[in-house]
Amino acid sequence: MDKRRRRQIQVTVNGQSVRREVDVRLTVADFIRHELFLTGTHLGCEHGVCGACTILVDDRAVRGCLMLAVQTDGAEIRTVESLAQGDTAHPLQEAFQDHHGLQCGYCTAGILMTLVDFLANNPTPEESELKNALSGNLCRCTGYQNIFSAAKDGAERLRIEEHSDDDIRR
């Protein structure tokens, strides 16, 4: 193996440790989609504008088309497939369903993962902050209105969940 062209990498993907040999030029989006068959993450533009490929690397939202798989060696990756716990949907997923926050669903994973990161750091955003956080995700179906309603409500649901977790800890 020419280490300059192929590399062994070890990543934790949605909590599972994965070891793979990859081409160094393989993007992390293609890696999770075509090598790990986690196809919930989508590619919309491959030049870093549409946000459909947003995933979390070490808990931070990144564009999966602008990062190489080899750069995630040793990192923790989270994709949309990690959100629901068994039959229990993530509060953001529930909010998107209840508010009709998706139509074709192609951009949705990127939006959800963006929100997971953003809301973890900004649990009570102003409306303008929430919009700014979502400004890097293109959607052609919804006109964004219901995405925004869903995101707002999702933030609220996450806060409630956080509180009830606190109650349980007490």
Binding site: R33, H34, A89, Q97, Y106
Partner: peptide
């Protein structure tokens, strides 16, 4: 009525053309 399409799409379990291997 809430959409019957949503659950799979929200979970990343939709199957789009590039998901076919």
């Amino acid at each position: 009525h809430t959409r019957v399409e949503d659950e799979a799409l929200l979970r990343g379990e939709g199957r789009f053309i590039d998901d076919i291997h």
